[in-house]
Simulated scan of single mutants.
Amino acid sequence: MANTIGSFRVDIVESKESTLNPANVKLPGVALNLLKLFQLQPTAAAVPPLPEGVRVVTAAEYKQAAACLADAFAEDDVVFYPIDTPDRAHWTKQEKWALHVEILEYVTYAHILKGLVTIVGDFEAVALWMPPASDMDDYLTILRSGMWRLNYRLSSEGRRRFFTEFLPLLHDTKHSTLGPRDDASWYLVYIGTSTRGRGKGHASKLIRHVTNQADKDGLPVYLESSNKKNPPIYRHFGFETVRTVYLHRAERNVELDIMVREPKSMEKQ
């Protein structure tokens, strides 16, 4: 789910619950043996040539990258959809923020393992990509990244929203939109600029890094936008809105614009 952000400041609140190091997850003996056997490492996919100012995030840097995204998505209805639920109404803003950061740490680490995470500046802008023919749905990635903990960290309603509505909607929408090209596409899952990084053109560098490669390979690029201000920005990079989908379990429907960028002919560039 891709997004950029408006102008506001959020102070990140750390909690003991958000200090997990996925590389040191405590798991039952069988799962631990599996991890030792396969020795899952951040191998990811081939990285397009890196332009000046863009680099790949390492596993040791997942917290900094996640903190940037947490800042960028601090007021995003979709990101907080499984967190800000009626059965967590008694939670403080600090508790909800800590879970917000924690979830993005899991997601970021999973993309470091199986996708591509890039930054510009001192973690001023971050992009999470899933390259063609890649996904992070395998058992080992879920274990290693800590994503399995969401079964316990989310509330009952949060689990229903995340696992039975949100994830299936994203999966089915992408598949039905791209059809046979689903596995032959780049997927911009998240892109966000921190408060201190705005207005510097960082997001443009992160997007063009991959879209230039997609053009060379003749591949589409797919994203979901959760902020109504952003489709005009993405259109500047060649994306077009192809449909709109909705999350229905909250008091009001939460909207997602589905956007696809078709490959551009290199002869025209």
Score class of each variant (00 low, 15 high):
Ala2Trp: 03
Ala2Phe: 05
Ala2Ser: 14
Thr4Asp: 04
Ile5Gln: 10
Gly6Arg: 08
Gly6Cys: 07
Arg9Pro: 05
Glu17Asn: 08
Ser18His: 02
Thr19Asp: 15
Asn24Gly: 12
Pro28Asp: 10
Pro28Val: 05
Val30Met: 13
Val30Lys: 14
Leu32Ala: 15
Asn33Ala: 15
Asn33Glu: 14
Leu34Ala: 11
Lys36Ile: 04
Leu37Glu: 13
Phe38Gly: 05
Leu40Val: 12
Gln41Ala: 13
Pro42Ser: 01
Ala44Val: 10
Ala44Trp: 08
Ala46Thr: 15
Leu50Arg: 07
Val54Ser: 02
Arg55Thr: 15
Val57Tyr: 00
Val57Cys: 06
Ala59Gly: 09
Glu61His: 03
Cys68Ile: 05
Leu69Glu: 04
Ala70Gly: 06
Ala70His: 01
Asp71Arg: 00
Asp71Ser: 00
Asp76Cys: 04
Asp77Gln: 15
Asp77Ala: 15
Asp77Cys: 11
Phe80Gly: 06
Ile83Thr: 06
Asp84Thr: 11
Asp84Cys: 14
Thr85Asp: 05
Pro86Asp: 01
Asp87Thr: 02
His90Ser: 13
Lys93Pro: 10
Lys93Leu: 11
Glu95Ile: 03
Glu95Met: 07
Glu95Arg: 06
Lys96Asp: 04
Leu99Arg: 05
Leu99Val: 09
Ile103Glu: 09
Leu104Cys: 01
Glu105Lys: 14
Glu105Thr: 09
His111Cys: 07
His111Asn: 09
Leu113Val: 01
Leu116His: 06
Leu116Ile: 12
Val117Pro: 04
Thr118Asp: 02
Ile119Lys: 12
Phe123Ala: 00
Ala127Thr: 03
Met130Glu: 11
Pro132Tyr: 04
Pro132Asn: 06
Pro132Ala: 04
Asp135Ala: 08
Asp137His: 11
Tyr139Lys: 11
Leu140Trp: 05
Leu143Gly: 06
Arg144Gly: 09
Ser145Leu: 07
Arg149Leu: 11
Asn151Leu: 10
Tyr152Ile: 06
Arg153Val: 07
Ser156Trp: 11
Gly158Ser: 03
Arg160Thr: 10
Arg160Met: 12
Phe163Arg: 06
Glu165Lys: 05
Phe166Asn: 00
Leu167Gln: 14
Leu169Val: 06
Leu169Trp: 03
Leu169Pro: 09
Leu170Thr: 08
His171Trp: 12
Asp172Trp: 09
Asp172Gln: 15
Lys174Gln: 12
Ser176Asp: 11
Thr177Asp: 03
Leu178Pro: 01
Pro180Leu: 07
Pro180Asn: 09
Asp182Trp: 10
Tyr187Glu: 02
Val189Pro: 14
Ile191Phe: 01
Thr193Trp: 00
Ser194Ala: 09
Arg198Ile: 00
Lys200Asn: 01
Ala203Trp: 01
Ser204Gly: 11
Leu206His: 00
Ile207Ala: 09
Thr211Cys: 03
Asn212Phe: 08
Asp215Val: 05
Lys216Tyr: 07
Asp217Asn: 09
Pro220Cys: 03
Val221Arg: 03
Tyr222Asp: 08
Tyr222Ala: 00
Tyr222Gly: 02
Ser226Gly: 02
Asn227Gly: 04
Asn227Met: 03
Lys229Met: 14
Arg235Asn: 13
Phe237Ser: 00
Glu240Gln: 12
Tyr246Trp: 13
Tyr246Glu: 12
His248Met: 11
Arg252Ala: 14
Asn253Leu: 12
Asn253His: 14
Val254Met: 08
Val254Cys: 04
Glu255Arg: 14
Leu256Lys: 01
Ser265Tyr: 07
Lys268Met: 10
Gln269Ala: 15
